[in-house]
Amino acid sequence: MDDTGTVVAFYLLSALTIAAALGVVVVRNLVHAVVSLILSFVGVAGLYITLSADFVAVTQVLIYAGAVSVLILFAIVLTPTGDRGNQETFLRLPALLLALLVAFTLGYVAIDTDWAISDREGFQQTASVIGEALLGKYVLPFEIASVLLLVAMMGAILLVRPEGAVEGE
């Protein structure tokens, strides 16, 4: 974070991300909220780019802005129309308190931690390094995560299957 371009980009993207994230909470219309959530995801992807983590940035766009948000949109469209507003609920105050608590904790940790600065050069090709790490050093967690996701997916399919549905047509 030395040249002006990166600094300007960082602040612009941060502003975008935070504004969009606020939008998610504040906007009454659920679809608008999802759209600003996507914007916030894209902003985060931009932040990754300023950190020269290009692989993570592109993955962020692919997974979060592309796939996850589509899932959320699907969920909203499948919800009955009456429940689609971002209505006020009695959980408003507790949620606010919880959010503030989390924000405070994160902020405190961020400020309090003595961040060590690595003297190693940044990676030129992040993709290959990530790949090697995932399939070398971290292969076990990676595989466990895969199996977990698979199980979750199968569970989800099982849950929404209509009673007595037959396979195929």
Binding site: V58, T59, V61, L62, A65, S69, V70, L73
Partner: peptide, 8 residues
């Protein structure tokens, strides 16, 4: 990644 944004 960019192609998937079209969906939105």
């Amino acid at each position: 990644a960019v192609g998937s944004l079209n969906t939105i």
